[in-house]
Design a protein around this nucleic acid. Sequence first.
DNA 1: GAACTTTCCAGATTTACTCC
DNA 2: GGAGTAAATCTGGAAAGTTC
Length: 236
Amino acid sequence: MDRDARLDRLYSLFDDLERHVGGKRRLRDCDGYMDWPDRGVYFFFANGEYRANGDQLRLTRVGTHAVSEGSGTTLWNRLRTHRGALSGTYEDGGNHRGSVFRERVGEALVERHGLHDEYPQWGHGSSAGRDLRLEELDLERRVSDYIRDLPFLWVNVDDEPSPDSDRAYLERNVIALVSNYGEDPIDPRDARWLGHDTSSEKIRRSGLWNVDHVDEACDPAVLDRVSEAIVETDSP
DNA sequence: GAACTTTCCAGATTTACTCC
DNA sequence: GGAGTAAATCTGGAAAGTTC
């Protein structure tokens, strides 16, 4: 099976998954009281951007969590980090220093709109004080707007936290399969895709908001593992 | 050292249960 | 059904830990 055919099967599996869980969700419509699996892999799709075949939304980011021994982080814990704060001091903002997805989206917004002078510290360091975070709040809100509007799916993969977990395997190999980095592009990104403005060559060339695994080879067996995971996934 | 993930904690919110 | 209470869960925020 060539890469084209594998991608067709992957997206066909996403169609199955969507039917299985009752449709894609958006983070703006989700909360932690929904019945999320404790652990899993999530797939964000581009909003309004379709594959070359014209009827399937284009995958834009793959992620997971609990890939360290002993980790207790849940799937929702990770998703809400990407979603950002709903209320409080940083209402509708978030913390891009806790979510590389947020950081990369914000960085691309800075590039696209020439905001370097306004946000010189964006992405610098692993924490920031209150004053700096308030200065960055407007951009955090724009990032939240962008991410909360992306349709996403997830699969339940609840094995023990470890770098060798099934979650890590799925994440790594789905990224490797979809990535256009070093490949003849399949489903090339729309010219308006925000990721074209990031400084990360891996994001621009892979067509994904991912940096890790975009230049790796894909194990074809991952498609069977995705199929198995769909069966184990319930609607929240 | 940079990039990214996980942990911790205090306070807020929701749910479940009991009693009237 | 409504009020009160306890338990469970979620939240934002900050910083430490892990991996490469």
